[in-house]
């Protein structure tokens, strides 16, 4: 869910609400703290803290998530 939400934000940042970001962040803390989980927490944190100024930064974390999730 969090991954899809971040991807959706990357496609159109206005399509995602801050409540959805907060809920997704809380949900990630129920997961085990593995590398992929921490990548998504990072992406959500950057969205909350930096917003659209940090699209490349978020994209980098998503790519890292995809790399670790597929390894």
């Amino acid at each position: 869910m969090s991954y899809e939400l971040v991807k959706k934000w990357l496609d159109d940042s206005t399509s995602v609400t801050s409540e959805e970001i907060n809920e997704a962040s809380d949900a990630m803390l129920q997961q085990m703290p593995t590398g992929p989980t921490i990548c998504l927490i990072a992406a959500l944190s950057i969205i909350k803290n930096s917003g659209v100024d940090a699209v490349k930064n978020v994209r980098e974390r998503v790519q890292k998530y995809e790399q670790e999730n597929n390894s």
């Binding site: 100024d53 490349k56 930064n57 980098e60």
Partner: peptide, 8 residues
């Protein structure tokens, strides 16, 4: 393993 080059 990253310099986080896009950090603002």
């Amino acid at each position: 393993e990253s310099l986080f080059s896009y950090n603002w």
